[in-house]
Amino acid sequence: MSFRVATWNINSVRLRAPLLADVVAQLAPDVLCLQETKTPDEFFPHDAAEALGFSHRVVRGMKGYNGVAILSRLPITLRPGEPDWCERGDCRHIGVDVQHPSGPIEVHDFYIPAGGDEPDREINPKFGHKLDFLAEVTRWQAGRGPARRAVLVGDLNIAPLEQDVWSHKALLKVVSHTPVEVAALNAWQAAGAWVDAPRHFVPASEKLYSWWSYRARDWAAADRGRRLDHVWVSEDLSPKLAGYEILKSARGWTQASDHVPVLVELAL
């Protein structure tokens, strides 16, 4: 009995709603978590999601920025009482309980602040917000203890390992791979005893990316990627890890997002 969960920073769900069908055809997820939906809830393309078999949906969006959504073939229940991170109301997290035949599975969908260009909170408030967000979510996680029968996904906007970026040396002072960000992400992961699911299959010594900049003239030839999109599973689910896929071909689709979908399969 499998459970297939995918995450994708879609970079505008209304613009790229037609691509959802391609993601479903390639990955066949039971649950699809989106980030950067960039639309108020009333304008979310529910018809497109319904047509693809996602009869259960929770969306949390705002005009032009941020936004997350969880689309599911299985019944889901919104988890009540989750924090308003940094008291900004900026639509960066949804937590749900998925009613899988093997039992409930807790699923969290996060969109972590990108952090701007300068890795210095004194001159760049966006970087300060990112660090504050990570500190708050780590305290929240520590208060809950190790995750149990849970999956956490999203655009976490940090590439933690040396082989998660095209050049460790070149990006050490670039937001998304700085030591302070990596330490913050590692603290969050440790607080929940989360397991990095794709790296369960791919050794840390091998390159692995999920994002390629729009700035590259030929993204595929340059291949200067970063792994910003993550799937973590609780330790009790890690023995059930059955497969993963990073849909690199999606970066070459017409009107592509700069992120590609990442899928993990559990055999429950």
Rank of each mutant, 00 (worst) to 15 (best):
T77I: 03
N66G: 14
R57Y: 11
V96N: 08
E106K: 11
M62S: 11
D90E: 15
K130P: 09
D132I: 02
L78C: 01
H56T: 04
V68S: 10
D132P: 01
D90C: 05
R88G: 07
G81Q: 10
A51N: 15
V58G: 04
P75A: 14
H93G: 03
T77N: 07
G81P: 06
S55E: 03
V59D: 13
D47K: 08
P40W: 08
V68M: 07
Y65M: 11
R60H: 04
E118N: 07
F43W: 05
A51K: 14
R92G: 09
T39F: 02
H46V: 12
L131P: 06
M62T: 09
L71R: 00
H108I: 05
D84T: 09
V59L: 04
Y111Q: 15
G53K: 10
R73Q: 10
D97C: 01
P119Y: 06
R121Y: 02
F133T: 07
G95P: 01
G89M: 12
F133M: 05
P104A: 15
T39Y: 01
W85G: 06
L52D: 12
H129N: 08
R121C: 03
R60M: 06
A135C: 07
E106Y: 10
C91K: 06
S102V: 08
A69M: 05
V68D: 11
I105T: 03
H108T: 09
E82S: 13
E50T: 10
H93L: 05
H129T: 04
K38I: 02
H93M: 03
H93V: 04
F133K: 03
R73V: 14
D84A: 12
I123M: 08
D132W: 00
Y65V: 10
F43R: 14
